[in-house]
Amino acid sequence: MADFYIPRTLIRDRGQDNEAVLTEADIPLIKAPIVILGDPGLGKTQLTKTLEVRYGFKRVSAGTFYRMQNYAALQTAPDGKLIIDGLDEITSSSGISAIDEVLRKLSELHSPNFILSCALQIGKDRQIVTKLAKTTVPSRSLFISSPLLLKTP
């Protein structure tokens, strides 16, 4: 049986005055860090795999990224993106939160343009977005611009 793929539609700033619907084709044009949130099973991993193949982005599971010591293979081209899929699937045993560890490693990679995907979990998605927002304050800037939050409908 042939693979069947349904292109994803994403919503930016759901519930806000500037809410907008985006397609997969819009993602490469976004020059800010991206956080993709959605319920389990809605296709976030398939979306990240499609972005990797179509646009040549580098993709790594969050667990692999979390455990990596050598980041050389993850260097991206200036117009590329680093995709870290499944942020919700990692837990920390070191006392440092998994989110903080991922942000630290992104900083060590010189803050590449990235996409994080994460399943929605009560409280955890707010924790991720809050931490990213705090890290993007200009006086403590790890990233060039604030992350763009996209949710699956």
Rank of each mutant, 00 (worst) to 15 (best):
M1L: 10
D3N: 14
D3G: 15
Y5V: 11
P7S: 05
P7W: 03
T9D: 09
L10E: 07
D13Y: 09
R14Y: 14
G15H: 02
Q16Y: 15
D17C: 04
T23G: 14
T23A: 10
E24D: 12
A25H: 15
L29F: 10
L29R: 14
K31L: 15
K31H: 14
K31Y: 12
A32P: 06
A32F: 03
A32R: 12
P33C: 07
I34A: 04
I36F: 00
I36N: 01
L37A: 06
G38Y: 02
G38P: 03
D39R: 09
D39T: 08
P40N: 06
G41M: 05
T45H: 01
T45A: 00
Q46G: 03
L47G: 00
T48C: 11
E52D: 09
R54Q: 14
G56A: 03
G56W: 01
F57E: 10
R59K: 14
R59C: 12
A62N: 02
N70T: 08
A72I: 09
L74T: 07
Q75V: 10
A77Y: 06
A77V: 02
G80F: 03
K81E: 01
K81W: 05
K81G: 04
L82N: 02
I83T: 01
I83V: 12
I84G: 01
D85K: 02
G86Y: 02
D88C: 12
D88F: 04
E89S: 05
I90D: 00
S93T: 14
S94G: 03
G95H: 04
I96R: 11
S97Y: 07
S97Q: 05
A98N: 02
I99K: 00
R104S: 12
K105I: 03
K105L: 06
L106V: 04
S107R: 07
E108M: 09
L109I: 10
S111G: 10
P112H: 07
P112F: 08
N113P: 03
F114L: 09
F114V: 04
I115A: 11
S117V: 03
S117C: 01
L120P: 04
L120W: 11
G123N: 05
G123R: 06
K124Y: 15
D125A: 14
D125S: 13
D125V: 06
R126P: 06
Q127F: 14
Q127G: 07
Q127P: 01
Q127H: 15
K131M: 12
L132Q: 02
L132M: 11
A133F: 10
K134A: 15
T135Q: 09
T136M: 10
V137Y: 10
P138E: 09
R140H: 13
L142V: 11
F143E: 00
L148N: 07
K151R: 15
